[in-house]
Design a protein around this nucleic acid. Structure first.
Length: 823
RNA sequence: GCGAAAGUGGCGGAACUGGUAUACGCGCUAGACUUAGGAUCUAGUCCCGAGAGAUCGGGUUGGGGGUUCGAGUCCCCCCUUUCGCACCA
């Protein structure tokens, strides 16, 4: 007897592994392309194999898994694959610190994390796993590089690039964070270095990347990308130095051309040396040196006061032939536009501040609807408003709404310049001076220059026998033989590129490799591609908004143009989960000691409880602080569900199937089903769980009222387990089998709402007097407005408050309330 | 500075297109069962006031104003928090 009781207790630590093994053995979650059957590609961002799965991984993956399971039950052929973004710096750091080979460290971590992922109880189809450091994977990463190279989308350029002195590598612009320009990974302030590096022409796609129609992405991500890409419309205008040498400037305000009173070049601008007069040379050179050194150390953050020096040189304004002085200043950036500007202090705040400091001329040329122009000497700030042009030669009088097109037409006609669009986005720097990455498949031949490694020689394998010397240089560079090779063109001696690729390169296409990870004839099997792509829902953190999510879109569009993939976008729908903070509401970190270890939770509560709590405790897209007592609620819920099914039910006492308890149960059941379906659809997981908790409360009550044993009761038990299955797959499976089913609950269809049963027979009509709640009355659904009005007026509460008042108006909202306006 | 999002009980959070604010859970209070319980079950729990009581009245969604029969929800102003960008010409 005692034994029996024990065997019925809810014990996730026994039940969960048992079902995981069985599902695995039965291949329950294998998904194969079935042309003709509706598919759903659910993808969640792949983890970096750092060692242990942390709670953030659980938060990203398990609700995504629940959503994928829901879609599967709704009849879609769902694929939910997983892999590892396995190249990258931590592996090398571990290697240096602990003398383990990065490969060994990475694969050991992958092994451990695979086990942890399995214990989460996901529907991952492990046959589709892809690992980016596997030569069979990076062979294709290199192949893509070659495609880009051949399509003129990859190029090598010597340029000042951001360098992290701690990671000993260059960084993409996206990986440099904040105004003090720190390394995204290690927080070290970056420095500038002049190096020859490989770039991808992401800027070619700047315009198209701003287009989001047809994809369902969060507003927030779209805005972040738009701002990152930073499109500005304006004009490019050619000025000349006094000596006749042309140089271009970009401006968004070509209508202020007549107001240019000086020019500013970036200190690194190539024309600086030529323009500088002999008497100014010493000062200019000192400023340039200081500016360069400043960026070399660290940009000043607080002090934003503009500085600059006069070069002694002059330029000629093409529109009026005026001779204006040329300055250099570090507020003009070489990396944006042309590195040169015309300064219009009257209408640009930065130029204004500079002018005030150095005593240059201010000349207003835009007049706001007839307002009088201020005396430049009295101006406190630049006039940024729009208006009609004055003091502007032939264009004087042009009204505000025509300035742009008129000026551009004028510039083009005279050959002074042209309308132009500038982007903040820069080309993607993909070279990394590190070992643990996919080698850039390029060979340098003294005869033929940079030559791509032929396809049949891919992958260019990383050598295993490497050594770290304290120089901080990549072991590939120091390897005795690896660099030496033959030129693919002439067969002569040549050298390999020793840089490897940014790991964002690997993660830009992993969703394609999942489709056919062992396919040999290309990066992916086109048959699989045609069936599964595009990705229907992509889930992951918002921190990738301007990195991975721009790169992967660029990648897809570039491959489309090369003819390798189809469609304009790789991911149709994107959803972001929030971040779980520590119990102290601070970001989790080892140093704070507020890290939540999922393995401990798993051992204590089981995967189903952890999954349920993660879905329940906050809005998924917001996240929030962890609460170690809160999870008890999820645990209690599942235990209560368990006992509802496993404890012997009382005999049914309900005399018919239409007792009030039964009708109410069915109504609540189908209303819950409707809500759960809708909320799953909308990624609102917290209310999915809340609704299931509510329904459980209703079912407990119905049981105590004798509904157990009725048909409705059995229906409720059936539907409840199905709704539970995506949230808590193990307990749901156990309960489902306990109901006598042979086939897994995870192969069952999602139940259909019985609208008839869900419909309320009676509703509570709210009675308001002048907008204040005064009474409630229960009325049949669908009564006439007139009847509702009568019933409301007859209520005690209405009577009491209407005494001595005159009814002025009665508003009836069918099915909801009656508001009586009285004075 | 610019941009975005968000401010609801002691806490996490609900509230579909303007229509019963505070669902669900945590915590707390009381009781039951227990040798015991940080187990389980039952009842209660926004605030203020009145009442022995069932109840009754008033107030409440960061603050102020507005639109409306009616505002957590819409509009305007302000405050706070979080995030992103940061001299982008």
């Amino acid at each position: 007897m005692e034994r029996d009781k024990d065997s019925r207790a809810y014990d996730p630590s026994a039940l969960e592994p048992r079902w995981q093994e069985r599902w695995e053995a039965e291949g329950l979650y294998r998904s194969d392309a079935e042309p003709g059957r509706p598919k759903h590609y659910a993808l969640t961002m792949l983890p970096y194999p750092s060692g242990d799965l942390h709670i953030g991984h659980w938060y990203a993956i398990s609700p995504s898994d629940a959503r994928a399971r829901f879609m599967r039950m709704r009849g879609f052929n769902v694929v939910f694959p997983m892999g590892f973004d396995a190249f990258g710096l931590p592996a090398e750091n571990a290697a240096i610190k602990r003398n383990i080979h990065p490969k060994e460290w990475t694969w050991a971590n992958i092994e451990r994390m695979r086990g942890q992922l399995r214990r989460m109880g996901t529907m991952i189809d492990w046959r589709r796993e892809a690992v980016s450091c596997d030569p069979e994977y990076y062979r294709w990463t290199q192949w893509f590089f070659m495609q880009f190279f051949l399509a003129d989308l990859a190029y090598r350029k010597r340029a000042a690039v951001d360098w992290c002195p701690s990671c000993n590598t260059t960084l993409a612009r996206e990986q440099v964070i904040g105004d003090d320009r720190r390394c995204e990974r290690c927080d070290t302030p970056v420095i500038r270095k002049e190096l020859a590096q490989w770039f991808f022409r992401t800027t070619r796609y700047a315009e198209e990347l701003l287009e989001f129609s047809g994809i369902d992405w969060p507003e927030r991500v779209r805005t972040l990308q738009e701002r990152w890409i930073g499109r500005s419309e304006g004009a490019q205008v050619t000025f000349h130095t006094e000596q006749g040498e042309p140089f271009e400037i970009f401006t968004t305000r070509p209508d202020t051309l007549w107001g240019a009173t000086f020019m500013v070049l970036a200190p690194e601008h190539p024309l600086v040396a030529k323009l500088t007069s002999d008497d100014r040379r010493a000062e200019v050179e000192a400023y340039v040196e200081k500016a360069v050194r400043q960026t070399d150390i660290q940009r000043e953050t607080a002090d934003k006061e503009k500085t600059g020096v006069f070069t002694g040189g002059y330029a000629v304004n093409p529109v009026n032939g005026e001779r204006i002085p040329v300055w250099i200043a570090d507020y003009v950036l070489m990396s944006y536009g042309t590195g040169a500007i015309m300064a219009v202090p009257a209408h640009d705040q930065r130029d204004f501040e500079f002018t005030r400091k150095y005593g240059l001329e201010i000349r207003p040329v835009i007049q706001k609807n007839g307002e009088e122009l201020p005396d430049p000497a009295d101006m406190q700030e630049a006039m940024s408003h729009e208006g009609s042009m004055i003091n502007s030669g032939p264009l004087t009088g042009t009204p505000a709404d025509q300035v742009y097109e008129k000026v551009v037409a004028f510039l083009e006609e005279k050959g002074y310049g042209k309308g132009s669009v500038n982007f903040r986005l820069r080309d993607w720097l993909i070279s990394r001076q590190r070992y643990w990455g996919a080698p850039i498949p390029i060979v340098y031949c003294p005869e033929h220059g940079a030559v791509p490694v032929p396809e049949d020689q891919l992958p260019v394998l990383l050598p295993d026998d490497i050594e770290w010397l304290p120089t901080g240089e990549s072991p590939l560079k120091l390897h005795p033989t690896w660099r030496q090779t033959r030129c693919p063109v002439c067969g002569g001696p040549a050298e390999r590129e020793t840089d490897t690729m940014d790991t964002f390169m690997c993660s830009s296409w992993y969703h394609l490799r999942y489709l056919s990870p062992r396919y040999d004839g290309g990066p992916f099997d086109p048959v699989e591609y045609r069936y599964w792509m595009p990705i229907d829902t992509y889930t992951g953190g918002i921190e990738h908004a301007t990195m991975h999510l721009i790169y992967t879109r660029f990648f897809h569009k570039a491959l489309r143009d090369i003819g390798i993939v189809q469609g304009d976008e790789p991911m149709t729908q994107l959803r972001n989960q929030g971040i779980i903070l520590g119990e102290d509401s601070e970001k989790m970190s080892k140093s704070r000691g507020n890290v939540v270890a999922p393995d401990d939770l798993l051992n204590r509560y089981g995967a189903d409880t952890v999954r349920a709590y993660l879905m329940f405790f906050a809005r998924w897209d917001q996240g929030g602080p962890w609460n170690s007592r809160g999870i008890e609620g999820a645990s209690r819920w599942l235990r209560r569900v368990w006992s509802l099914y496993m404890e012997p039910a009382e005999e049914a006492t309900a005399e018919s199937e239409n007792t009030e308890a039964v009708v109410r149960l069915r109504r609540k059941l189908h209303q819950t089903l409707r809500q759960v379906t809708r909320d799953f659809d909308a990624f609102q997981f917290n209310t999915v769980v809340a609704a299931l908790m509510e329904l459980l409360n209703e079912m407990s009550q119905a049981r105590s009222q004798g509904a157990a044993g009725s048909e409705a009761w059995e229906e409720a038990k059936d539907i409840y387990v199905r709704m539970l299955a995506p949230v808590a797959p193990h307990i749901a499976e156990e309960l489902w089998r306990s109901l006598g089913h042979e086939r897994s609950v995870h192969l069952q269809p999602w139940p259909e709402v019985d609208e008839e049963a869900a419909r309320d027979e009676e509703i509570t009509l709210v009675v308001q007097i002048n907008g204040k709640l005064r009474d409630r009355v229960s009325v049949p659904v669908g009564i006439s407005q007139e009847e509702a009005r009568e019933r409301a007026l007859a209520t005690e509460g209405a009577q009491r408050f209407l005494e001595g008042k005159t009814v002025r108006n009665v508003i009836v909202v069918p099915g909801r309330l009656v508001n009586i306006v009285a004075t």
